[in-house]
Each structure stands twice: as structure tokens, then as C-alpha cells.
Amino acid sequence: MPEFQISRRPALSDKQPVTGPGIEISTPPPGAILHALAQPGDAGARGFIESALMSDIFSIRPVSPGQWFSVADDPLSHADFRNLCEALEPRVDLVDQSHGRTRIIVQGPQVEAMLAKGTAIDLHIDQFTVGSAASTLIGHVSAHLTRTGEHCFEILVLRSFAENMWDDLVRMSREFN
């Protein structure tokens, strides 16, 4: 068997981060994004997931009744993924979305004003507190938005729309930088 050089090419791998006084836009190195699915009425499912996934590695973001994204900064091997599946099934099924979703971090003092150009969600910190997460339209593209800090948000977008989202965010940020 010949030797093949196999390297990852994440979406946005050719994008330079945007920096400026108002807004910073960046995409972190690829990590793990696991889609956890329980039955919608399973009240204890979230706790069950948290107990199985180490909280210092994974942070849990609500997506929908019975569905969460578990996001980690480091990639997960297929074997490790299978192990997690076995730990959670059949109560919770995991689907790997690590390659299917692209993470974009937007932050800075003007970040709420910038995101208001895309989403109808009221991002006032009293309404959308740190840790709040929601799926929403940003412009014409669906995305999952999490407030990770006072002026810091994580966007999870379908990989195929990542470049489009990036370009939109750069345009939306222009007046603040």
C-alpha cells in the first residue's frame, strides 16, 4: 500500500483572523462537536450527558428539546467517540458533527451591535446571559449561537456555509474596526 499524506483541511483554514478595537473574529483549531440526542421528554438527559462527558473537556450547549451540542477544544478519535457512544446509549445517542459544524468566535465591545445585524434574538446581557445558547438565523443562514462571555459569542455553522458566514461577519464588523 502506498504511503499517503493525510492532512485535515478545515473550512476557513485560509482565513486570517479579524482584529480591531470593536470586534475580533477568529476560528479556533478544529475540536470536537458531538450532537447528543435523547427523547425530548427525558428530563434527566442533560445531567446524564454531563456525568458521562468530562465537564472540564466538554461544554454542553442546548440545541432543542432533547438535543445538545457538546463542544471540546481538542479533536476526538473515532475510538474515543465510540467509547462515549457506548457509555451513553441507548438513553442518549451521539452523532459526531466535529467536521459538519465550523466554530467561529466573535468578541469585542461592539459584538452585540454587530450580531444584531444578523439575528433577531435580543442579545442584551440581561436577556441572553453568559452560557445562553440558541439556534437562529444569522442573515440568511441558520447557526447556533452561544454567549461564552460578556462580549464573546461562539457561532456553530454548517461547514458548507462557513465561508459565507465568515464573509458576512467580516462585512458586519467593518464599521466597528
Binding site: 440526542l37 435523547a38 432533547g66
Partner: peptide, 12 residues
């Protein structure tokens, strides 16, 4: 029915 659906179009 216990059925769970995840779109993985972009994963692969």
C-alpha cells in the same frame, strides 16, 4: 416512537 434525527450532510 423513539426516533432521533440528526442532519449530517456537512459532516461527510
Amino acid at each position: 416512537l423513539d426516533v432521533r434525527l440528526a442532519s449530517v450532510t456537512d459532516q461527510w
